[in-house]
């Protein structure tokens, strides 16, 4: 009993210590609205309010790898890029998967960087995703959406960095989806030969092995998102042409028809498995999604 009395007294002392009469003064947390420029306001209207996304386009070293040599974005390039990102990535997914789907899974922080991100081996990192929450996009200063006045060859050249960056967006978003709900384990068994030495292979060589790109060879997760991103940044016609033209050559440089057919079948099986996964899990018809994205890309390049 004495024990309880002691604890009671101790409790009273604690409560006594927490006198509410103390003046805590002004909050240390700065809750004032920062000064917003035109770009900030546009981002609020188009990304922050509808999707709860923070877009960081100003230089913030704490968001980046300090060992890398990088530059900030050019202010003039921010809105055009984000507009196109909405048209090519956000809106088609929202249309086909629903607004709620996009609101739930869109990365909540996007960091934009102007320069290339070089690796020590000379390679370039196009984008980085961290745990489905943050996505960092590089190269912004090299992407120009104004293709007016260019001839068809110049347009194709100008479209390369555009397709590259949006392929990166679809790639990283693919990771978020399969990390949320995994794709069927059977996908991992469709092709063998995953290797960390993927950089020793070319894309054509990889396709002959049943992988859509050389980077797909790294592991099944990368294979899955490479398939998805390559699929979504091409029209269905271009996609079919790419697959149908896969050829494997024997040691005498003759086409090995059987091996070529097998490679095409493997990629088609992957395509079917991805289509089923997207439809069953996320209620998204990737063929419709592909058509919607292709329409925007087609308008941009013509």
């Amino acid at each position: 009993m004495k024990k309880y009395i002691c604890f009671l007294m101790l409790g009273l002392l604690f409560l006594g210590a927490c006198s509410s009469d103390d003046d805590l003064g002004e909050s240390l947390i700065d809750t004032s609205t920062p000064e917003l420029n035109e770009v900030d306001e546009w981002i609020r209207e188009n990304y922050t309010y509808p999707y709860n996304v923070e877009v960081k386009y100003k230089w913030d070293n704490s968001e980046l790898d300090n060992t890398k040599i990088l530059t900030p974005t050019t202010l003039d390039r921010v809105i055009p890029f984000l507009e196109k990102m909405k048209e090519i990535w956000v809106d088609p997914y929202a249309k086909n998967g629903g607004e709620d789907f996009m609101k739930a899974y869109i990365p909540k922080q996007m960091v934009l960087v102007g320069s290339h991100n070089y690796e020590d081996n000379g390679g370039i990192v196009l984008g980085q995703a961290e745990g489905g929450r943050k996505i960092t996009i590089f190269d912004l200063n090299y992407i120009d959406f104004d293709l007016s006045g260019l001839n068809s060859w110049e347009k194709r050249r100008a479209m390369e960095p555009i397709l590259r960056v949006f392929k990166t967006m679809h790639h990283e978003f693919g990771h978020i989806l399969h990390q949320t709900i995994a794709y069927p384990v059977e996908y991992k068994k469709l092709t063998t030969g995953y290797t960390s030495n993927w950089m020793n292979f070319g894309d054509s060589e990889a396709r002959g092995m049943g992988f859509i790109t050389a980077y797909s060879l790294l592991n099944p997760d990368e294979d899955f998102v490479e398939m998805l991103s390559e699929f979504l940044t091409r029209s269905n016609e271009d996609w079919n042409e790419l697959i149908d033209k896969i050829k494997v050559y024997d040691e005498n440089y003759y086409t090995d028809e059987d091996a070529s057919k097998l490679a095409r079948i493997k990629i088609r099986e992957k395509e079917k498995m991805i289509a089923d996964y997207m439809l069953q899990i996320w209620k998204i018809d990737i063929y419709k999604l592909q058509a919607d994205i292709a329409a925007v890309l087609d308008e941009l390049s013509n």
Partner: peptide, 8 residues
């Protein structure tokens, strides 16, 4: 220096 310029 927050955005790209000559100084970048």
């Amino acid at each position: 220096f927050d955005t790209y310029s000559k100084f970048s």
